[in-house]
Simulated assay, not measured.
Amino acid sequence: MPECDHCGAHVSDQFERVFADPDGRLRACPACSSRAGIAETARERAPEM
Rank of each mutant, 00 (worst) to 15 (best):
M1P: 05
M1H: 09
M1T: 08
P2T: 02
P2Y: 02
P2V: 01
E3D: 10
E3Y: 14
C4A: 07
C4K: 02
D5V: 05
D5I: 05
H6T: 13
H6A: 15
H6R: 14
C7P: 02
C7F: 02
C7M: 08
A9V: 07
A9Y: 06
A9Q: 06
H10M: 11
H10C: 05
H10R: 14
S12Y: 06
S12P: 02
D13N: 09
D13S: 11
D13L: 10
D13K: 11
D13F: 11
D13A: 14
Q14K: 15
Q14R: 15
Q14A: 15
Q14Y: 14
Q14L: 15
F15A: 03
F15D: 00
F15G: 01
E16K: 12
E16F: 06
E16V: 07
E16D: 07
E16L: 12
E16P: 01
R17C: 07
R17W: 09
R17Q: 15
R17L: 12
R17T: 10
V18W: 04
F19Q: 01
F19M: 09
F19R: 05
F19K: 03
F19C: 05
F19P: 07
F19L: 04
F19Y: 15
F19H: 15
A20C: 00
A20H: 03
D21R: 04
P22I: 06
P22H: 08
P22D: 09
D23Y: 00
D23T: 03
D23N: 09
D23V: 02
G24D: 00
G24I: 00
G24V: 02
R25K: 14
R25D: 10
L26C: 04
L26S: 05
L26P: 01
L26Q: 02
R27L: 14
R27T: 06
R27M: 10
R27K: 10
R27Q: 09
R27C: 03
A28C: 09
A28Q: 06
C29N: 03
C29W: 00
P30C: 01
P30M: 00
P30F: 05
P30L: 05
A31M: 12
A31C: 12
A31V: 12
A31I: 03
A31T: 14
A31P: 00
A31K: 11
A31D: 15
A31W: 09
C32V: 07
C32T: 08
C32F: 04
C32W: 07
S33L: 07
S33W: 01
S34H: 13
S34F: 08
S34D: 15
S34M: 08
R35S: 11
R35M: 13
A36T: 07
A36N: 11
A36M: 06
G37W: 13
G37I: 06
G37P: 05
G37F: 10
I38D: 04
I38G: 00
A39E: 12
A39Y: 04
A39F: 04
E40T: 12
E40M: 08
T41K: 08
T41L: 10
A42D: 07
A42G: 13
R43T: 11
R43G: 10
R43K: 13
R43W: 03
E44S: 13
E44N: 13
E44G: 12
E44C: 09
E44W: 13
E44D: 14
R45G: 02
R45D: 03
R45M: 07
R45P: 04
R45Y: 00
A46G: 14
A46I: 06
A46N: 05
A46P: 00
P47R: 13
E48H: 13
E48C: 08
E48V: 12
E48T: 11
E48N: 13
M49E: 15
M49C: 10
